[in-house]
Design a protein around this nucleic acid. Structure first.
Length: 559
DNA sequence: AGTTTCGGCGCC
DNA sequence: AAAGGGCGCCGAAACT
């Protein structure tokens, strides 16, 4: 049996399947099978399923208990390939890819549907246009050729495999859900916000704080309305340009303390309060609907429920099932370690070759032991800081780690000039030209960048620089995402042999829910997955990617 | 009345 | 002390 098969849902509810040869071309006839799950289950020797979209096929397989080892997601591949080829913005569906191949009119991508609170509908009503298996295979074969033409074909193939693995992990996480105690959540809310009043208005604590704010100003003020707050401060003789916390905190006025407290609690109430609980938690699970590759840098997003922005205080509600534990693993200083791996800066590689605190090591070498300064400098270099202490310290960083800083500087320069910028594996930053056009259009500025620079003061310095910062960050954040995908893929393989399930992933942090007796195995698996991902992603490198792991009953106890 | 943008802040 | 990269989400404000 060939180890690679293609699969496409048919209009009658069945599926077409076909074996593929080593060259990726069909190695046998297309067969129609009535039961999709059985079609997969009866072929345990298949190690990679080629299909249009994991989101189209996999949730239904998972619903019947069928998992697959690997897949190749044609539409994920199309997105990566188009980006790599500098063709951002062209439709990414398999149907569009086929049209480009055959020379027909290229259909636009269907609009993305957002998740309905409380329903799992979008998980089971896949988006996109179905394609017959032979057409799918034609697109697949062409994609194989396009991988060969990539800047680094081996890395590009790895990237597509990693992204495909990510789609599997995301689908499995969506099915598993994050264990969530509504009871604990309600207790936390009551503790922070006080009782709810009938009618759905502010809870007690918020009402009290609003009263305190009003009392401090001597008139009724709505603390949730920035315009009202700015006006109130102005009447008190204090000029502020926004109600951002850092700006408010710089002001000396009795309203500041209750106002800041109000804003903090208000945020919890509106974003993760009782109605959120009602909308998003069902049968002890929160299902944020993870979407792999949802951002241009390769980071994931969640669709609904703010799954990647769970406030620290609310993590108290994430509680393992009885007899089970949460293994919470957080990559240590991931971004500077990735910068070391991609820049090959000797000093930074040496520092990142240790598992000890990287910022401490950097500060010992370049900042006389001031860890906070070192961290600011490193993050400033990665984010493109333009002022403040981080900028001042950038010079010290540059002296000690010249290749590392040069690497992100070069990315920024390339971004400003509109050249393509890629992650280590080949994910490609959207070209600056389009961003510039859009920016110009938004600003009502016609015509070329040159003219804009010539005629509109400030235009060049804001937009060009912003693109530079974007590209600078892209190479680090995106390469980190490359690595994280391969780490997830490796960890998923170990979990497949256990009862353990991956239940959460947030850029550099992963949570595995598993029986108590599996925790040691899982902790070891995370370490091994991180090492393997480092070697696979970056090739031979001294850089290590340690994790801090915690075995807990409750997420909030992990830090 | 419905849709889009803005301000602010949560996470990394 | 000052305000940088990626996101999503909410209500209010600003529109059609």
């Amino acid at each position: 049996m060939a180890d690679r098969w293609a699969l496409a849902p048919a209009e009658d509810g069945g599926v077409d399947v076909a074996p593929l040869g080593p060259d990726g071309l069909p190695a046998g006839p297309v067969r129609r099978e009535a039961d999709p799950a059985e079609a997969v289950r009866s072929r345990p020797g298949v190690t990679r399923w080629v299909w249009r979209s994991t989101a189209e096929v996999y949730p239904r397989l998972l619903a019947t208990g069928v998992r697959v080892e690997r897949c190749y997601d044609i539409e994920a591949a199309e997105t990566l390939l188009l980006g790599h080829e500098g063709r951002y913005g062209e439709p990414r569906s398999a149907a569009a890819a086929l049209a480009r191949l055959r020379g027909g009119p290229v259909p636009p991508d269907p609009p993305l549907r957002s998740a309905e609170p409380g329903s799992q509908s979008s998980l089971f009503e896949p988006q996109g246009v179905r394609l017959p298996l032979p057409d799918l295979l034609a697109v697949y074969a062409e994609q194989q050729r396009r991988h060969e033409r990539a800047e680094h074909p081996d890395r590009m193939r790895l990237l597509t495999a990693a992204e495909s693995a990510g789609t599997l992990v995301a689908a499995e996480m969506n099915r598993a859900g994050l264990p969530w105690s509504a009871e604990v959540h309600r207790a936390v809310l009551h503790d922070l916000l006080g009782e709810r009043y009938a009618g759905g208005g502010e809870p007690r604590r918020l009402a009290e704080l609003a009263d305190e704010v009003s009392a401090a100003f001597g008139r009724r003020v709505r603390p949730d309305l920035p315009a009202d707050v700015i006006k109130a401060f102005a009447q008190a003789g204090i000029k502020i340009s926004s109600t951002r916390r850092w700006e408010i905190e710089s002001v000396d006025h009795p309203a500041v303390k209750p106002l800041v407290e109000y804003k903090k609690l208000y945020r919890i109430w509106v974003a993760h309060g009782w109605s959120w609980l009602q909308d998003w938690v069902r049968e002890g699970r929160f299902r944020p609907e993870f979407l792999a590759g949802g951002t241009v840098t390769g980071r994931w997003v969640t669709n609904g429920g703010g799954g990647l922005q769970i406030p620290k205080v609310i993590r108290r509600a994430v509680v393992a099932d009885p007899g089970w534990r949460l293994v919470v693993a957080d990559a240590d200083q991931m971004e500077p370690r990735v910068l070391a791996a991609i820049s090959r800066d000797p000093g930074l590689m040496e520092v990142a070759g240790r598992e000890t605190d990287l910022y401490q090591s950097v500060s010992d070498r370049a900042f006389s032991g001031d860890r906070a300064q070192a961290k600011l400098a490193v993050l400033g270099a990665v984010y493109g800081q333009t002022s403040g202490d981080g900028l001042k310290n950038l010079a010290a960083l540059r002296r000690r780690f010249p290749k590392a800083v040069a690497y992100v500087d070069e990315a920024a320069q390339a971004g400003e000039e509109g050249r393509l910028v890629r992650t280590w594996l080949g994910r490609t930053c959207p070209p600056a030209a389009r961003a510039a056009d859009e920016g110009a259009e938004e600003a009502g500025i016609p015509l070329s960048e040159d003219e804009a620079q010539q005629w509109v003061p400030g235009y060049a310095s804001t937009n060009t620089r912003a693109r530079g910062r974007f590209a600078r960050n892209f190479v680090v954040q995106g390469s980190a995402a490359d690595w994280a995908l391969l780490m997830l893929a490796a960890l998923r393989r170990t979990c497949a042999d256990l009862a353990a399930e991956l239940v959460f992933f947030q850029h550099d942090e992963v949570i595995v829910h598993c029986p108590e007796e599996e925790t040691e195995t899982v902790v070891a698996a995370i370490r091994e997955a991180a090492d393997l991902a480092g070697r696979l992603t970056f090739g031979p490198t001294p850089v290590r990617f340690p994790f801090t792991t915690a075995v807990v009953r409750c997420y909030a106890d992990a830090k």
